[in-house]
Amino acid sequence: MAKKVNVELNMTPFIGLFALLVVMLLLTAVWNKVAMLSTDTASTTSSDSPPPMSEEKKVKLNVTILKNHIEMAEDEKGTNIPYVNQEVDRMRLATIVNQWKRKYPDRTDIVLNTENNSNVTYDKLIAVFDTLVGHGFPDVGVNTQ
């Protein structure tokens, strides 16, 4: 006759372990995830020095945040993107940035200018910066002039 085995698992150490885990994880939890967008201002501030002669003439890709719209300029050719409810139209911005990326696949740099107006706020700068970085232009230089 087979021996009946009816063993209950001792749960006390499990509960102790879980309680310790919960306390440890609560202490190390990050509720506000903060990250960063980097800009190397050396590249934009050193524009006074002339480029080397051998360097092929590059098309200047400029994005300017203005009071009422964003101006995207490819040398002299520009496109305006008006704000939607006083916020950056990320979709339209991304469409044009994608077009630029298809046209200039090797380019990763872009210059971001802002109008010196109190209506141009920091969240707009970050929204445009973020869109540029997310669509293949990680080397965004912020013009501080």
């Binding site: 506000n32 995830k33 903060v34 990250a35 960063m36 967008l37 980097s38 800009t39 190397d40 201002t41 050396a42 501030t45 700068l125 970050i126 910066f129 973020d130 912020v142």
Partner: peptide, 10 residues
């Protein structure tokens, strides 16, 4: 200080 990072919420 030429390397400037903007702190953002992820």
């Amino acid at each position: 200080f030429t390397g400037i990072n903007f702190a953002v919420r992820e």
